[in-house]
Design a protein around this nucleic acid. Structure first.
Lengths: 331, 331
DNA sequence: CGAAAAAATGTAAACGTTATCACGCCGATT
DNA sequence: AATCGGCGTGATAACGTTTACATTTTTTCG
């Protein structure tokens, strides 16, 4: 509440001097410095981030934005934690928003972030052609993409090797003797979905298995669609003996569908999911999954963003992290 | 990026006029209004929230802070969603931070929020005596407490009837025939913990059961402590036949401990947890829990905060929501 | 000792808004 | 005809910082 003005008055110096002792920039003679510091303490002065941000050019707001589809999805919650911890370590605050995979919300929040003059933004773009994000990048705000990539713009990117994860998962099922493997994928506009599908197809092909159209279903990443699609697949005349489900929520939905049909896992139908689940060990059965290093994704994204803020012209880099197949009892 | 200045120049009017057409306050003659609006569009003008916030007195930043212990805890994630949705509906942005139940982090973020001149703050206080929160309230920033209450300060509060929830849970176990019921509670400085313990004790007393010290253990709300304490209880010479576990993470930990010991649920040991779990249905077994209306807590907190922002002198209110006993297969 | 150089401090502009006040113009009132 | 109100607008002072520049004080040294 106390402003520079008041501190200056109390210390009987000019506001410039106070500002100087605060920013330890120019030299201030020890005596005055002491006086000013005393006044600072007496008044419990705290600089206004708002005024500071208005005055200064880019990159020193110590505020970054994070837009994620849904904080209730543990995958994104884990990313968020990674970002947050790295931000806190660098004394940055975080403006966190849920886009709900809704372009309008994403747009709204991108606008807010521009208008708040954040130092940078971290997000998984809605899809490869995300126009709102492209526009934001044009304004010059540093953007780091996580999880999903953007087709046109060249930004820093932290992604996971989705192809490899899917390939390993499906190879694992094949190694377990499965020949009829169903695929439940997410929205196909999203780059990760397509990579996972490629991994699935290639793994099949490498083992001389022909993909079947009717075994491949696309959902929307949500639990309910996992349930519905698993039901469809298991309701076929010749159903698959194994399911590869392309994200965490849909995996839970698929398991629910399987339970509902009274099928035993993995004896009657095996399941491998993408994304680990926080309480996987307590699930029935604990599912085999492709675990993404989500915390690292967030952490590295924040570190990349900090680097870019410091050095805006640095050429964009892509960090590709490796997923890990965690074999539990559903396969 | 375009400022009022530039718009004014292009429309050949003063910045005051531009500001007027933006804030539709004073009258502007239709002709000039049209010209200005055209200029606004041409330049793609967006007002700077930062400048606006600096200039205006309290309550119009359209920015509120939310501090929660851990976004990875589904209970808080659900609260956060409730807050976020209500905020978005009112076109407020959210500054979200994790305190990790760490007073220093909480303090840091409270500071950030002061310095950002947020319109208000929503949080579960660290404990009843939370000094950092008390100080923040003194500065005049509207604060709404959720989940936990504050001893001294009189703030708006959205809480859940913890006593009742615990009472119902334990009564349910007693009705199922249990006479030896263990309690795994959280940090006892937190008001909710004590209320839940009261509910436990009263339910026992009402059925003529004497509480046993050795059946009551206090943890720190985290999964690991649930595991450890459940192990302690089940390792007693005469172990309890049922466990009442006072939050979600500790419930998962307790279930893990039980599995590890090879005990069958609910035949050998029954469990009732506090807080619902998002994938309860997929857990083994699906646990009986006291479900808190976390989404509503968040939503109502945000609405209360908005009211207070509009009317700062309104007397504080307490909203008490009812939990619901969801009986599944662990009891 | 005095002038120049160096160091410390002060002044004021700028950041992008909102809001108060003053100004000019026009029709209406005495 | 002089005055008054009202209305639309423009100038300008905040808000709380940082910083370029101006000014004052101190130090250096011939």
């Amino acid at each position: 509440m106390a402003s520079l003005q008041e501190v200056a008055r109390r210390a009987k110096v000019s506001i410039a001097t106070v500002s100087r002792v605060l920013n330890r920039s120019d030299k201030v003679v020890p005596e005055t410095r002491a006086i000013v510091e005393q006044a600072l303490r007496d008044l419990g002065y705290r600089p206004s981030r708002v005024a500071r941000r208005l005055r200064m050019k880019d990159g020193r707001a110590h505020l970054v934005g994070l837009i994620i589809p849904d904080i209730q999805n543990p995958f994104y919650a884990e990313i968020a934690r990674g970002v947050e911890d790295a931000a806190y370590a660098a004394e940055y605050a975080l403006l966190l928003c849920n886009s709900d995979e809704n372009p309008d919300k994403e747009s709204f929040y991108l606008g807010v972030m521009r208008d708040e003059s954040v130092d940078g933004i971290i997000l998984p773009p809605f899809d490869e052609a995300d126009a709102a994000v492209a526009d934001t990048i044009k304004t010059g705000i540093p953007v780091v993409c996580v999880d999903r990539s953007l087709a046109r713009a060249r930004t820093d990117l932290v992604e996971v090797d989705n192809y490899r994860g899917a390939h390993e998962a499906v190879s694992h099922l094949i190694a377990r003797g499965h020949r009829h493997i169903g695929l439940i994928e997410g929205r196909t506009q999203v780059s990760t979905s397509r990579e996972r599908r490629r991994g699935y197809l290639d793994a099949l092909a490498e083992h001389g298995l022909a993909p079947k159209k009717e075994f491949m279903r696309a959902g929307d990443f949500k639990q309910e669609s996992g349930r519905i699609l698993a039901n469809e697949l298991l309701g076929l005349r010749k159903p698959p003996t194994a399911l590869f489900v392309c994200n965490n929520l849909m995996t839970v939905g698929a398991l629910a569908a399987i339970h509902q049909r009274g099928l035993r896992v993995p004896q009657e139908v095996a399941v491998v999911g993408f994304d680990d689940l926080p309480w996987a060990e307590a699930l029935d059965p604990p599912p085999t999954v492709v675990r993404q290093p989500a915390y690292n994704v967030g952490q590295q994204a924040m570190e990349l963003l900090l680097k870019r803020i410091m050095e805006p012209t640095r050429p964009p880099v892509t960090v590709r992290l490796l997923p890990e197949l965690v074999i539990r009892r559903s396969s």
